[in-house]
């Protein structure tokens, strides 16, 4: 039976890091958007997101975390409620070693946050698991959205051609950030994003590795 390595962003990055040329590069050269040192905001967002998603999001997720937070912040309601969520999160003292070792405590803390901050928590979890954010038609023209949500470019082309200008700018649209990076694929390690090589020929004939 062939051995299949479960897909993991971290494992991919780890393998990349084995290459001496890459491993010697500062993170700012690997990603043009990442700073050499994570900003406190993004670091906190990653910690909060780890708790909410149940998946440890290390610094290999810094860029994606920054992108998600930037897109979520386009929504005024989110920005407003996110500050309140952060205050609640900081009160949890989640960075203590005892807390990080206690799965039940983490689950309880996550549940308390979703119970008291439903909207921003749902937005954050959806952004990570689905790699999707809720936007409005007017966001389509935002350069940040155009850069980070590639699914939202063709419609403009269409509008220009069809002379259909009757779009309500407040209408809800979904921006997809990066299908392959959706945490759903981390949760379902027996599969991987569609249109991604799954492993050696015939791997599908066997039960996935536990």
């Amino acid at each position: 039976m062939p051995k299949i390595s479960p897909l993991s962003r971290r494992s991919v990055l780890k393998n990349l890091a084995l290459a001496a040329t890459v491993s010697s590069l500062p993170i700012s050269l690997i990603s043009p958007y990442a700073s050499a040192k994570p900003s406190p905001d993004t670091s906190t967002f990653l910690s909060l997101s780890s708790l909410l998603t149940g998946i440890k999001l290390d610094h290999s997720y810094l860029q994606l975390g920054q992108d998600i937070l930037s897109l979520l912040a386009l929504n005024y309601q989110f920005s407003l409620q996110y500050q309140s969520l952060l205050l609640s999160f900081e009160k949890l003292a989640v960075l203590t070693d005892d807390f990080l070792d206690d799965e039940k405590a983490q689950q309880d803390a996550a549940q308390r946050l979703v119970d008291s901050h439903y909207y921003p928590v749902q937005s954050i979890i959806k952004a990570w698991y689905l790699s999707q954010v809720s936007l409005t038609e007017q966001d389509r023209f935002n350069p940040l959205v155009q850069k980070l949500c590639p699914n939202l470019s063709s419609k403009q082309e269409h509008l220009a051609w069809s002379n259909d200008k009757s779009v309500n700018l407040q209408s809800a649209i979904i921006g997809q950030i990066n299908y392959d990076e959706a945490l759903t694929w981390q949760a379902c390690q027996f599969t991987k994003p569609s249109a991604t090589c799954g492993g050696p020929f015939g791997y599908w004939a066997y039960a996935p590795k536990a």
Partner: peptide, 13 residues
């Protein structure tokens, strides 16, 4: 939310 969410997604899928 959290680990319960992750396990639920895997289990149902």
């Amino acid at each position: 939310v959290g680990d319960a969410l992750k396990r639920h997604i895997e289990n149902k899928t």
